[in-house]
Simulated scan of single mutants.
Amino acid sequence: MSTNATTSASPAAPAAGTRPAGLSHRLGLWFAHAYVLGMCATIGGAYVFQFGLWEYPCPMCLLQRMFMLLSALGPAMIIARSRKGAVTTGEFASGWGIAIVSALVGGTVSGAQVLMHIAPGDPGYAGALFGLHLYTWAAITFFLAALAAGVTLVLADRAAPLDAAAGSPALRRAAALTLAVLALFAVSNFVACFFLQGFHWQMPGDPTGYRFFTDLF
């Protein structure tokens, strides 16, 4: 009888595979938000050149934007999963793995474009920011993104957002906003690509306008 009383008085054991989330887990999920928004901000900077300075992106530039969106998709999957409940360490690691692979491939594309214009006297493609062209900034961004995602992956056991972090009201509100921002940039990038290419199978290597409108009018 005493044994039963002791058993009933003891706290319930946590479910298998879960544990209370501490500060490190909440920070891990907040960092996923920062990563997604950082990638979107980078694309937003490219939009300033495209729509503010009328510098049309080349196909390689657009490809780099797509890999930025793909890299942001990994952490976005973690954020979306956290809205439904617990996120396992495996799901957390898979999301950041997608971020790393996409950043490495995107960095290869931007690195190839850097090498294309590395010859002395080559003015490079389009404008520059602080003396560096956008594809150079993209290469730097991909490198830093892969590094940050790799460190987060190493710390997955400590940073994985589990029950308590996933249930945070602030994180739930932030999740809706972050996912909406990513969706906005994904759709806007698709629309921009369509207007640049129009109904043609290929986009010119040095576009001078939006072919959809030039063909229409």
Rank of each mutant, 00 (worst) to 15 (best):
A174I: 10
P11H: 09
M77K: 07
I118K: 07
V109E: 01
L179E: 07
V191D: 07
D163A: 14
T3P: 02
G90M: 04
G111H: 14
G205W: 05
Q50T: 13
A164C: 01
A138M: 02
M116E: 07
A180D: 05
L134W: 03
G106S: 14
S110Q: 04
A146K: 11
L104G: 03
Y56W: 11
H33P: 08
A16V: 15
L129S: 08
L216A: 13
P75G: 10
V101P: 00
S94Q: 10
A166T: 13
A156M: 04
P11Y: 06
A34I: 10
A46R: 14
V181E: 03
A32K: 10
G198N: 10
V48E: 03
L63Y: 06
R65I: 00
G17A: 10
A180W: 12
G121R: 10
L115M: 12
I140F: 14
R158W: 02
W96T: 02
I78V: 15
F212I: 03
C58G: 09
S102W: 12
A32R: 11
A149Y: 13
P14R: 05
S2H: 15
F195P: 00
Y135M: 01
A160E: 02
M203N: 04
D215T: 15
T18N: 13
H117A: 00
I140G: 02
S2L: 09
L23V: 15
D163T: 15
A156V: 11
F190S: 09
G38H: 12
V101E: 01
G85D: 00
C61A: 08
A138Q: 02
T136M: 00
A112R: 12
A149F: 08
L182R: 12
P57A: 09
F217M: 06
L73R: 06
V151T: 07
A119S: 15
L63Q: 07
C58H: 12
A112E: 00
A41K: 12
A183M: 08
Q197H: 13
Y47W: 10
G45C: 03
P120R: 03
L147H: 06
L132R: 12
P120C: 05
G124S: 05
L155R: 14
G95C: 03
I118S: 12
V187E: 01
A126P: 00
T214W: 08
I140M: 07
F49H: 13
L155Q: 14
V154N: 04
A174Y: 10
A180H: 12
F185G: 06
A86L: 06
G111Q: 12
P11S: 07
Q50G: 00
G38L: 05
L63V: 01
A41H: 14
F143G: 02
Q50S: 07
G17D: 06
I43S: 11
V87K: 07
G85Y: 04
L144G: 02
V154T: 12
A112L: 10
A149D: 01
P169T: 08
I98D: 00
H33R: 11
A112F: 11
A170Q: 11
I118E: 01
V101H: 11
F212C: 02
L129G: 01
F185Y: 15
A175Y: 11
M60D: 01
D122E: 04
P20F: 06
M39N: 13
E91F: 04
G127L: 01
Y125N: 00
F194W: 08
W96L: 10
L162G: 03
G44L: 05
F217H: 14
A72W: 11
R26C: 03
F51G: 00
H33T: 04
H133D: 00
A176T: 15
P11M: 02
